[in-house]
Design a protein around this nucleic acid. Structure first.
Length: 590
DNA sequence: GCCGTTTTCGGCCCGACTGTTTTCAGTCG
């Protein structure tokens, strides 16, 4: 079983135990173990083979380690299967209905034998639910609406779309409501790759008026909940937006609290309790018996300072070791957008891009960059108008013209060359040698088996003219699973060869993902953050790539395109080859 | 089921909102 499968089983065990009414801390142990496995970039098998074994994973002790061992050895988990005999897997879908939690599921199954969404819908339509304990007519209607909503918009949305909505809510609220401060919180502020709902935080002396303005915003299709300090609405596309209003002196506390993650906050509170300190969304307090002394709350920094900690960047707040790092004074100094000196993976009208080389160069100048890599597709990409060798060479003229038109930007003449099924590249080496920068990517044959796919990519990494592997796992967020590849082997090969792996900044890709980037850093593989832009205005997607790199704890020295142009030129492998040196001499004479 | 700056046993975060209730349970984040 692979990591995803093992994580899924562990998290299903947690849900099943919850429905059974088991010890909530046991439930949490399984949840945390599932997260730990899901976050790994190595395979679980590799962790087991490692020196410290499975127990080295957070929240994995003797019991859960046994279950994981069984899954690795036999491909299934008897404990999980026993639980599923008591409670059928169909209840997982029921839990996705807003307002339906484990207690309700248990009650429905025991009293009415309801274990599927369809049965629940039927019972609600028949008016059976309202007769059950703790339920009434409203709950019944709520469940019917929840089912309809789930069918239509069951998915999480990508980070790019979420920020579009959030920016527009913030802008409209600033116009319409008496607010002083407004900020996005939640997974949006942490820049997670997908967003369930959008959390906005405001400060105001007149919360009721803010709530009134909020539920009447133009983009509100439906009001889900409405309270004096918290309301939830749905946009016409079915995205939920939550707004909370707090007093100005609680802004930092609320921002900290609602940014999460849940696990980060749980660990923080655990730390706080030991020091007789209480954290909530209103502030941080020292607790002495019945007495509470307020220590702060206006600034996020005060919340952390009360625990003797520096503030951690939101992207790190996932309980992946950041609190320990903060305690020990070894928080990394994360890469920032301002550190990025150029984009090295963009397309132009020569292949499937929609902007000319010059337009791309002007956009790069506007972004404050020093350089830009034009990396059009290679011949195999016929649908993307991939460049045959003659067109690739013909493109040089236009690149030269763009260099003259936008002299502030150093343009790297590049390609995104296909890695063919056998690991060979779509241009011969002598053609790749003529270029300044080569990204090699897999665009076909997704279904290859793991070993062949791994060898395929490693062969490309070993080609002396390859500078970077593009979107290294091939996944599309929420749409397409990554292809089956041994990431650890890929990283090791890249480290040996000095080849960069891409952090593709397109919010549909984010590939490498955060935990992979972190592993790349550990192994010493340089990361290229690049947008893969097909339109000039898509250079702005860099923001999402940088955010995901931050989630992977990357610092500027870990990122290839945080290098100034002169250093970059000499750092590339081709700079070391005699042929490149002669080419570079020619370039200098020009 | 996990874990240790108080612990190898006894802890394990906190509050708002809703609906169905007459004081609270369930859900959510």
């Amino acid at each position: 079983m692979n990591n995803t499968e093992i994580a899924r089983v562990l998290s299903e065990i947690a849900v099943l135990l919850q429905i059974k009414g088991e010890n909530p801390f046991k439930v949490r142990a399984y949840e945390r173990a599932a997260e730990a496995v899901g976050d790994l970039s190595q395979t679980v098998e590799q962790v087991r083979a490692g020196e410290e074994g499975l127990r080295s994973l957070p929240a994995v002790g003797a019991g859960i380690a046994d279950r994981i061992e069984e899954m690795l050895d036999t491909g299934n988990c008897t404990y999980h299967q026993d639980l599923l005999r008591e409670i059928p897997a169909t209840v997982f879908d029921m839990l996705r209905i807003p307002g339906v939690g484990p207690k309700t599921v248990k009650m429905l199954a025991e009293r009415e034998g309801i274990v599927t969404v369809e049965q629940l819908e039927e019972a609600a339509q028949a008016g059976v639910l309202r007769e059950l304990p703790g339920m009434g007519e409203k709950t019944e209607q709520e469940i019917l609406r929840g089912i309809a909503h789930l069918r239509e918009y069951g998915k999480r949305i990508d980070l790019g779309l979420a920020w579009d909505i959030a920016d527009s809510v913030i802008e409209q609220l600033r116009e319409a409501a008496p607010v002083s401060r407004l900020a996005a919180a939640g997974s949006l502020r942490r820049m997670r790759e997908t967003i369930g709902d959008i959390d906005i935080l405001a400060t105001s002396g007149a919360p009721e008026a803010v709530m009134e303005a909020f539920v009447n915003l133009q983009l509100v299709a439906e009001v889900v909940a409405r309270g004096p300090t918290k309301s939830s609405v749905l946009t016409p596309a079915g995205v939920q937006v939550d707004l909370r209003v707090v007093a100005p002196d609680s802004f930092g506390a609320a921002l900290q609290y609602f940014t999460g993650s849940k696990q980060h906050n749980v660990k923080l509170r655990d730390l706080a309790v030991r020091r007789k300190i209480k954290l909530n969304e209103y502030g941080v307090f020292r607790v002495e018996g019945d007495e509470e002394e307020r220590l702060g709350g206006e600034l996020e920094e005060e919340m952390y300072a009360a625990l003797g900690l520096p503030v951690m960047p939101p992207e790190m707040r996932e309980d992946r070791g950041e609190i320990e790092a903060a305690r020990e004074g070894r928080l990394p100094s994360l890469i920032e957008e301002a550190d990025i000196k150029g984009d090295l993976h963009v397309h132009s009208t020569w292949s499937d891009g929609h902007s000319t080389i010059e337009e791309m160069a002007r956009a790069a100048k506007k972004a404050g960059y020093q350089y830009l890599g034009i990396t059009d597709h290679s011949p195999s990409q016929t649908v993307a108008n991939g460049l045959k060798i003659d067109r690739l060479r013909a493109r040089s003229e236009e690149i030269e013209a763009a260099r003259r038109a936008v002299p502030e930007i150093e343009i790297f003449e590049g390609t995104e060359v296909d890695i063919k099924r056998d690991g060979k590249l779509d241009y011969p080496d002598e053609v790749l040698a003529e270029l300044d920068f080569v990204v090699a990517s897999v665009h076909s044959g997704w279904k290859m088996e793991r070993r062949a796919m791994t060898e395929r990519i490693i062969k490309a990494i070993q080609n002396p003219w390859v500078d970077c592997i593009g979107h290294p796992t091939g996944r599309l967020v929420g749409q397409r699973e990554p292809y089956d590849v041994d990431l650890e082997a890929m990283l090791e090969a890249a480290a040996r060869a000095g080849v960069a792996l891409e952090m593709n900044a397109d919010p549909n890709r984010l590939d490498l993902k955060d935990t992979h980037a972190r592993r790349a850093k550990e192994i010493g593989v340089p990361v290229l953050i690049a947008t893969d832009a097909h339109w000039a205005n898509h250079l702005s997607l860099m923001r999402f790539g940088v955010a995901t790199a931050r989630r992977g704890w990357l610092e500027a020295p870990d990122v290839l395109n945080a290098m100034p142009v002169v250093e970059l030129r000499t750092a590339l492998r081709r700079a070391q080859s005699p042929r490149a040196r002669s080419k570079a001499r020619k370039r200098r004479r020009r």
